[in-house]
Design a protein around this nucleic acid. Structure first.
Lengths: 194, 194
DNA sequence: CGCGTAACCGGACACAGCGTCCAGTTATCG
DNA sequence: CGATAACTGGACGCTGTGTCCGGTTACGCG
């Protein structure tokens, strides 16, 4: 979705780039929840209707920017080295996944907050991928109640929560990652429980 | 906050009741995220300024309604019977707390969605209470990384998540509760880990 | 019991953002 | 090189917000 640059009129492509660059800047600078379509359009030097042509909301713009980074992580999960990639025991893979997601949130929190806030998070394609991945790990570990547990294990990765822990509670990324890892190893222990 | 009915002019009290009743109805009927101050005022037969006098946003109204129910649960946690109340081992208390919260969400999901959506959830007084309770359980169980783990364990109770699991994934309340209980017992096992 | 005061009420106002439409412009294809 | 299809951006009407102010109503005191 972020890379359908294929066959695009020269001026359209130029504007597309302008919009994404301006949005990246805006979301990083201002409160991500308060960026409006008008803001983005003005910052990009583009009319509002032009913006609406391709994106239906500020969240959609943020999502397009975030998408690229998430794809890269998805690639590493599918084909990368353990423990993130295949090969490691489920608990370790989950811990590695948690750590990688924390990295992503640390780097692009503003985009995540702009894109996946509230229940919108569950409707993104990326969430479907994370869900499938964790589900696989649960099955591999022989966990009972797989379907209900998947989303419980993804809940700690909500962007708003990371923001709260990091900047309200003042926790370092490392401590959050450590807690996530401990959680992962307890829920999916090496000696697979029932 | 929900019960400062003390010394209130007759007409003010009447309007207060009208507003809360109308809001209760509205949040249950319509999409809780799309209820506006104007909607509430109109439904209550009250001017907008009157509404703003006491509540700063639709979320504040929903919060006032939810508050009462949450207080009751808080009472049961502090002084009630085990496993919800004091006496039971931490893992069991956490499981009971999860079950009680699921009950609350099942009954008043619309209010929770109206009040505690997104990062607003962390700013409510209620969240502080849940946080303190879970923190106590973690300490009692001798858990490491208490501060970072508290919020991770509360994340699965986000209203949006419950809505997603229940109505998008089609899971029953019982299955969600079962998964939460399993999680609780693994994170806080009877033989207290480090 | 009646009056003064303080609090309350609700309509009016100005404003910001939304989403769409349309007329002008520009790139691409035959 | 001309026709066509797509892109662009300013303008418009709408909805919701938050505040202000003149009128009204309940309470306390003499």
């Amino acid at each position: 979705m972020a890379s359908d640059t294929g066959r695009l009129r020269a001026d359209a492509a130029r504007n597309r780039a302008r919009v994404l660059a301006a949005a990246e800047r805006l979301f990083a600078t201002a409160d991500p929840g308060k960026v409006t379509m008008e803001d983005i359009a003005r910052a990009a030097g583009v009319g509002r209707a032009t913006l609406y042509r391709r994106y239906s909301s500020p969240a959609a713009v943020a999502l397009a920017l975030l998408d690229e980074h998430e794809r890269r992580l998805q690639e590493r999960i599918i084909r990368g080295e353990p423990s993130l990639g295949p090969g490691a025991p489920p608990g370790e893979r989950l811990a590695a996944f948690y750590a990688a997601m924390a990295d992503l949130l640390e780097q692009h929190l503003h985009l995540a907050l702009g894109a996946e806030t509230g229940s919108a998070r569950f409707r993104t394609g990326a969430y479907g991928f994370w869900r499938l991945h964790v589900r696989t790990l649960l099955v591999a570990a022989g966990h009972a109640e797989v379907d209900a547990t998947v989303d419980l294990l993804l809940a700690p990765l909500a962007p708003e929560l990371y923001q709260f822990q990091r900047y309200q509670q003042g926790l370092s990324k490392d401590r959050i990652v450590a807690a996530l890892a401990a959680l992962a190893r307890r829920v999916l222990p090496v000696a697979a429980g029932q």
